[in-house]
Design a protein around this nucleic acid. Sequence first.
DNA 1: AGCCAGTTTAAACACCCGTTTAAAATAGCG
DNA 2: CGCTATTTTAAACGGGTGTTTAAACTGGCT
Lengths: 210, 210
Amino acid sequence: MSTKNKILDAADVLFADKGFNGTSLREITSQANVNLAAVNYHFGSKKELIKAVMSRYMDELSPQLESALALICQAERKPSLQEVFYAFIEPLLKLNEFKENGTSTFLQLLGRGYTDSQGFLRWFLTTQYPDVFTNFTKAVKKAYPELSTEEMFWRLHFTMGTIVFTMSSSEALIDIAQNDFNNQLDIAGVIERVIPYVAAGVAAPITNYN
Amino acid sequence: MSTKNKILDAADVLFADKGFNGTSLREITSQANVNLAAVNYHFGSKKELIKAVMSRYMDELSPQLESALALICQAERKPSLQEVFYAFIEPLLKLNEFKENGTSTFLQLLGRGYTDSQGFLRWFLTTQYPDVFTNFTKAVKKAYPELSTEEMFWRLHFTMGTIVFTMSSSEALIDIAQNDFNNQLDIAGVIERVIPYVAAGVAAPITNYN
DNA sequence: AGCCAGTTTAAACACCCGTTTAAAATAGCG
DNA sequence: CGCTATTTTAAACGGGTGTTTAAACTGGCT
């Protein structure tokens, strides 16, 4: 395997686990069995490595996500909100074929990107992959047309927060479910449980604010 | 003002903004106009300072929170989920009297505690202030008795994630609402919008998992 | 074989971190 | 005032960080 990929494979696990700021290049390179200087030689800087880690996942995910959402947008029938959210599941779970534990690793990375480093990754994602966001907004609008654009903005942000936060602590949650409730779950099980929650949240009745 | 309080005041804003790991003692002490060594003199270590910052808020909040929830638990009438969540609003907003921007600062800190430093703060909160959590669980159970303990555990965690994640980026959100929707909000406005969402999420119909 | 672009390596760089030290300044009190 | 205990201060400590350097090594080409 190429040095570049060895670095990427070691980096995304460590980044997901301990955050971008919490992971040093020395940890990454020793885990990957490559020289410390290799990161700067192949990627230029730590910041660029972070972008490369995210891009590798997004480039795999976004085409599938877009086509799944496009299918909903182009259909004649009005979709349910559950349907819209389930459109994410298959592409997300396919990341497990792309890389071992790919799904949870990616979602954890997404969470890290929102909280670490004062949101530069949020900027990176929304500018590099804007179509995913607009298609998602369209699909939700089709499923729940009464929702104003502003209200939808809020509820989609709440949804993003729920997913991202849940996934960034998914390992601990799976442990708790195992110990306290004797229920052995995997990442798909967590997703199954969060979808009804966020779908109901987005579908909440419209309230008037004073 | 005492050196101790100068440090606490500077620390919680910086911690909320940039995370615990992302904030150095040198930043804190220079912001507070005190000597670098003062932190270790008055608090012992950085870790103890973090605990002190959180304790200052929790000691202010938890008694009010507990009594508000106890009121619901002791009432004869079955409460609605919205009611349970609204019980948080008043105590939380009172933190603004306790300290400028106290509400959002505290909620941001809560979010940091969940994602930074691999959850040692989560342990700190649940062991130091367990009554808040048990009272909350009781109140929700009273409002929605059909929900199993496990399902409730999941949904309350999702709720925590939504709140915490929303608040840790509340400033950016308020800016967007101002620019894109010409809607001037404060922290109370954000809370008003998130409550219907989480209440609907917790109230979601029970699904059977295969 | 000789050459050379591409890659790897060990070492060093400059900087920031949390913590500790010991001396200096301050405040409280008999 | 003079003594003591508390607090503040500047400086240093040991260690970790991302990045850079220049030399060594590779594999493929003529």
